[in-house]
Write a protein that binds this DNA or RNA. Structure first.
Length: 354
DNA sequence: AATTCGGGGTA
DNA sequence: TACCCAGAATT
């Protein structure tokens, strides 16, 4: 068997052991593959599945999605992270609805031109839609070829990424592009894993350089240490006489871009002054910590009544009152959603206002 | 070419 | 805790 090609051995293995019942596989339409590919960027399959089910149930096709509001799309994305993906998804849907009669354009170049679709994702969609082999280079595939061809260096570096792309390109099959894309990703996800890889079951171990030299566990090279910055800020939970909470829309760039969140500032006094509330009316809640990949934040919440008549707080496009029943309809940052739901589940009027 | 975007899975 | 996950856009 070792004299058959890499792709033949891989496909034979995949036919017997590959994953074939993932939600985006049983009805493998370009639309569903696209939604799945975007959700799966930097996000594990297990995490994505419930989000994918909810999202495609609400938006079963391109035109339905194109007509959605950004708030509803972000609501269904809430908790998944990397919210630019959701905004780009909606942008792409609108482009497809207006310029491509509600369909994804199925060429690599046209896909690459759409927001949120890079080289790897374009090829992943294209290969699965057209069954034409193409290089896909997600984290799984990077690991497979870093080991197979003993390519050292962190794959996040462009020089390393070019080598990996070339290695992947050289072993593409001539046919069965859709299955091959699944197969090479499945190999990385199920056998060629980061820790404890199952090399003795690997269909391509006979030509794997790092397996031969016993360096599988050393590759791929880990990313350089991130310096995790600490951020601390205050948020206000202002409740009006109807039990609604004041939320502000965050700017489209930066963390939690486009989501609704509580009024926030690193300086409590400045925050209270901006919102026009009395310091003594506010009751501090326990601080909560939220850890992200590149920062750890400490949130200091303060809760109290709003004074609609005395404050200059107006309702506008970026600042509105939302009741508990509205929170599921908008995108909220994970810790903010948890904060609201844990302290304000149900009726909020009685426990806060005196 | 390096940095910035979330949140969670896993050992 | 450390590291990574079906990466792309921005700086």
């Amino acid at each position: 068997m070792a004299d058959t090609s890499f792709s033949t051995r891989l496909l034979t293995w995949w036919d017997r052991h590959g994953r074939k019942n993932l939600p985006w596989q049983n009805e493998r339409t370009p639309y569903r593959v696209w939604v799945a590919e975007i959700m799966l960027q930097q996000t594990q399959v297990k995490t994505v599945i419930p989000y994918f089910e909810r999202f495609t149930a609400r938006f079963p096709d391109m035109n339905t999605l194109a007509d959605a509001s950004v708030d509803e799309v972000l609501a269904l994305w809430s908790g998944l992270g990397y919210y630019a993906r959701a905004r780009n998804l909606l942008r792409t849907a609108k482009i497809c609805a207006e310029q491509h009669t509600g369909e994804l354009p199925l060429t690599p170049e046209a896909l690459l031109a759409l927001p949120g679709i890079g080289e790897s994702t374009a090829n992943a969609i294209w290969s699965q839609a057209n069954n034409h082999p193409a290089v896909v280079l997600d984290g799984n595939v990077q690991r497979v070829f870093a080991r197979h061809d003993a390519i050292a260096g962190w794959p996040g570096k462009s020089s390393v990424r070019r080598k990996l792309w070339s290695a992947a390109e050289q072993v593409l099959p001539e046919s069965r592009g859709a299955d091959y894309t699944q197969a090479v990703m499945d190999l990385g996800a199920t056998l060629c894993t980061r820790k404890n890889p199952v090399c003795d079951q690997c269909p391509v171990n006979s030509d794997c350089s790092s397996f031969r030299t016993g360096t599988v566990e050393q590759l791929p090279t880990p990313r350089p240490r991130l310096k995790i910055t600490a951020h601390s800020f205050h948020v206000l939970i202002l409740i009006d006489d109807q039990g609604r909470v004041l939320l502000e829309r965050r700017p489209p760039t930066g963390i939690w871009g486009g989501l609704w969140s509580l009024p926030e500032h690193h300086n409590r006094q400045a925050l209270e002054q901006r919102l026009g509330v009395e310091h003594d009316d506010m009751q501090s809640l326990p601080s909560l910590r939220h850890q992200l990949t590149h920062m750890k934040m400490t949130i200091h919440p303060h809760i109290g009544p709003a004074k609609p008549l005395a404050t200059g707080v107006e309702c506008n496009q970026d600042q509105r009152w939302f009741g508990p029943q509205d929170w599921s309809k908008i995108g909220l940052p994970k810790p903010i959603r948890q904060l609201l739901e844990s302290h304000l589940a149900g009726d909020t009027t009685m426990s806060i206002r005196k």
